[in-house]
Amino acid sequence: MNIATKHLSSAALALALVLGGTTLAQRYAAQPRTIHVDVSHVSDFSDTRKLAGFADNVFIGRVLEKTGTHSPDGVLPETLFKVDVIRSLKGSLSGTVAVNQQGGFSAEENAMILIEEDKLLETGKVYMFATRTGGDGAWQTLVPEFGDLHMGNGVQQVDVVQKFEKAVKEQVKYQP
């Protein structure tokens, strides 16, 4: 290999490394990571009676669409969903309501932010919701992990409904 060819090869190799590295870096940077936020709940919500006593509303609803992301306290993203109320077990919700789920995509962090392991609601799916009213009545904020139980099908659905009917009947009111 003469000197000119050697220089050309070196330049080509360097260019390939730079371009390849850039492409890899861009691909890596474009992949949003997941950040789990950890909270201290005000009550033991694994006890559905306490969950029902804490919630303003307990209802079965189908997620129609994701309507947006906002940040009421200016810190974390929260995601709003339009939900069709199928049946109310506690409270008087009906028709469609805005359900607010803490967590969502943060452009600033390039990350999906989740409260504990609480995955974002999925459009089309039916959930048992336990919520508190927020935003001066503009939305219903669900209890992460415990207040958005995917209903599943058949027997599982019946079991969940019976469990929550009983929980509402025997609810333990939240006391700070």
Partner: peptide, 13 residues
């Protein structure tokens, strides 16, 4: 916040 179920929160940023 009266609508959330947590009294404390830690988040990595």
């Amino acid at each position: 916040r009266s609508d959330v179920s947590w009294d404390g929160m830690w988040s990595a940023r």
